[in-house]
């Protein structure tokens, strides 16, 4: 089977959906002539024209708001924030508008917009360009938040997001663009939003992860296997709606869990997962649920310092060994 990068998977999903539905269009900073600062939309402006591949000014409030408005009025915009850090400027458009109009107006308005946003640390971009603020966005009902960890899921989730009648934030971890994975050619790949997935089976401990954390978790699980510890790795894929089914099913088998995320530990995804495991699986709890997350510091520039704050396989292995 063909192995392609996550970048290619995202590009393919966008292209396929644009061919399938004329109402799908792309807008954002440098998505057109430049071809996307992460090269995801390279060549699109030649293929689809300026009407459907729209360069915007550097103005995130209107990128977010105008995409929402176009979606309300019948189009299917895929609005790209050059990075999720810049989406902070559009928080109001995303949270107070895109995610609210359906409920606030009694179901009379729908807003089928997709916001794409690359993010994450580990690239020496300094404190303001390295956030993994997924939990902030996942906090609010009305918005769907997904973040794939494999090329296959990236392609399938993005296609679901574009076809969804609800607003979806599609978070791409920038260090995963080069990640290769199997994605069958010539067949329709759809991954439903709100469905977690077991990426590795094991019986000794449950590792819950997503996005770049999935790569870290899989690395750790493979190393642990050499030492005779078999971890089951559950990939959340969607943060809202959150599918706890496979997590709890795994936990009832292993009685122990480690949650891995690149965001901060406090008020994070791990906090949420840990709370839900104890609420819904208390009788199976054999050990404290461990959280492996970013250290509570603004990310520094200097390479080793930055890496020291981020998650990695040794930290996951250490957490597992504390409870197994």
């Amino acid at each position: 089977m063909a192995k392609i990068t996550m970048r290619q998977a995202i590009t393919d999903a966008l292209r396929e959906e644009m061919i399938r539905d004329d109402n799908v269009f792309i807008m954002g900073e440098e998505v057109g002539v430049w071809g996307g600062t992460y090269a995801v939309t390279r060549g699109f402006i030649d293929e689809f024209g300026e009407k459907r591949v729209r360069d915007t000014p550097i103005a995130e409030m209107v990128i977010g708001g105008a995409a929402a408005g176009a979606a309300m009025n019948g189009l299917r915009p895929v609005a790209e924030f050059m990075t999720i850090n810049f989406a902070f400027l559009a928080l109001d458009a995303i949270i107070n508008h895109a995610a609210k109009v359906h409920y606030m107006f009694g179901g009379h308005i729908k807003c089928p917009v997709v916001f794409r946003a690359p993010g994450g640390g580990g690239r020496q971009l300094g404190a303001t360009h390295s956030h993994t603020p997924d939990a902030i966005f996942a906090h609010f009902p009305g918005l769907k938040v997904v973040s794939p960890g494999t090329p296959y899921d990236a392609k399938g989730l993005l296609k679901s997001a574009i076809r969804s009648d609800d607003p979806v934030l599609f978070i791409e971890h920038a260090t995963l663009y080069q990640l290769r994975g199997e994605v069958p050619e010539g067949e329709e790949i759809i991954v439903p939003i709100g469905v977690s997935d077991v990426k590795r089976e094991g019986s000794d401990v449950t590792i819950v992860a997503y996005a770049q954390g999935l790569s870290v978790a899989m690395d750790a699980a493979n190393q642990l296997s050499n030492e005779g510890i078999e971890a089951e790795v559950v990939d959340l894929r969607s943060l809202r709606p959150l599918d706890m089914g496979p997590v709890l099913e795994s936990f009832r088998k292993t009685y122990k869990a480690v949650v891995v995320e690149e965001g901060y530990r406090s008020y994070g995804i791990g906090s949420e997962i840990a709370a839900r495991i104890q609420e819904e699986g208390f009788d199976y709890l054999d050990a404290p649920i461990k959280r492996v997350a970013q250290l509570e510091v603004p990310l520094p520039y200097s390479k080793d310092l930055e890496q020291a704050a981020l998650i990695n396989a040794p930290r996951v292995i250490e957490a597992v060994k504390e409870i197994v």
């Binding site: 209107v62 408005g69 176009a70 606030m104």
Partner: peptide, 25 residues
């Protein structure tokens, strides 16, 4: 009538987007 919006200025980009959809179509 797309509604009343309670964040000062928040609906102006929505208007831009609604107009974009009309131009697009």
């Amino acid at each position: 009538f797309w509604g009343g919006y309670a964040i000062v200025g928040g609906h102006l980009p929505l208007a831009t987007g609604i107009a974009l959809a009309e131009q697009y179509k």
